[in-house]
Computed example of a mutant assay.
Amino acid sequence: MSRGSITDVPGIRVGHAQRRGGGWLTGVTVVLPPAGTIGSVDVRGGGPGTHETDALDPTTLVPTVDAVVLTGGSAYGLAAAGGVQRWCEENGRGFPVPGGVVPIVPAAAIFDLGRGGDFAARPDAAMGYEAALDAAGSAEGAAVERGNAGAGTGAAIGAGRFKGGVGTASVRLSGKNSGVVVGALAVVNAAGVPWHPGAVPPSSGEGLNTTLVVVAVNAALSVAEAKRTATAAHAGMARALNPVHTLADGDTIFTLATGAVALAADPRLPAAAMIELQSAAAEAVRVAILDGVAAAGEVSTAGGSWPAFPAAGG
């Protein structure tokens, strides 16, 4: 049964690029929103690898986001954002400045270095450009490839013992706000494993970790509301994985708001609609993470072998 997709949010497109074999096991995922989309971020992990996240603070100059890049390769892989910026500039997407535009392209990375066998095999600007092209060329509402794709190609969970991957989900609000769709896309590379009663968290193991998420909504939000939505959505990560937000994780959630639909507020409790939206964001994140684990297949390379997690589920 389909759990929905981040591309259920009108105008949101997703593209992947990846390399496997010959020492490679890594990739890039790009989330491409409509022009004018508002964005913010909440970074909770103790070991983040990020690019341009400071630009998404509600107190800064530019409220919009032109693309979000999720990448393998740890800090090295953040170079992929340069390729996405190049695609955006070529297509006139960015903050207008004298002489041209400056694309706002925040990025975050997972640690997958060496999982294909070659520590130096990691995403670069060319792979970022390829993923941007893939996103731009996709149809409205196109299915998102899950599991071992894009930034999830080299992902692993459980302190590196099981395969991780890309997952996605969506939730629709109720009543007068039934036109509002909240979607999430997750790259699951966690130190933890899917939470269930009696589960024993893994030991620290080898390597570093991270779960990256993009939440998208077609509602009109301010940057501050997008920031608060990213914060609330971290509850979904905590419901899905144990442990989360550790010193060895770079857990990060971006929020994109396309502004196509105005939230209908109840005058008796104006905050109720926003509370429902943020609760839906947390649920979409939870399901997207479990979807990513469930969609990941077994992978064996020169760098090691990662079986699929045996107990993933919703």
Rank of each mutant, 00 (worst) to 15 (best):
P10Y: 03
V14L: 10
G15N: 10
H16Y: 12
A17R: 03
R20E: 09
G21F: 00
G22L: 08
W24E: 04
V30L: 09
P33F: 00
A35P: 05
I38M: 08
G39T: 06
V41Q: 02
G46Q: 02
E52P: 06
D54P: 04
L56N: 02
D57S: 11
D57M: 08
V62P: 00
V68F: 02
V69S: 05
V69Y: 03
A75Q: 07
G77V: 12
L78H: 09
A79C: 08
G100D: 14
P106T: 08
P106R: 08
L113I: 15
G117I: 06
F119R: 13
A120C: 06
A121E: 10
R122N: 08
P123L: 03
P123F: 03
A132Y: 11
D134E: 15
A135H: 12
R146M: 14
N148I: 15
G152F: 12
A156L: 14
G158Q: 11
G158I: 12
R161Y: 10
R161P: 12
G165C: 09
G167R: 00
V171L: 13
V171K: 06
L173Y: 08
K176A: 15
K176H: 08
V180A: 04
G183Q: 01
A186F: 00
V188L: 01
V188S: 00
A190I: 04
G192T: 05
V193C: 03
H196V: 13
G198V: 13
S203N: 00
S204F: 09
G205E: 01
V214F: 04
A220K: 07
A220R: 11
S222D: 05
S222Q: 03
V223S: 03
E225S: 05
K227I: 11
K227G: 02
H234L: 09
G236V: 06
M237V: 08
P243E: 08
V244F: 10
D249E: 07
T252V: 13
T255P: 03
L256E: 03
A257E: 07
T258Y: 01
D266G: 10
P267N: 08
A271K: 11
E276D: 10
L277Y: 00
Q278P: 00
S279G: 01
A282C: 01
I289Y: 03
V299I: 15
V299N: 05
S300K: 14
A302F: 08
S305C: 07
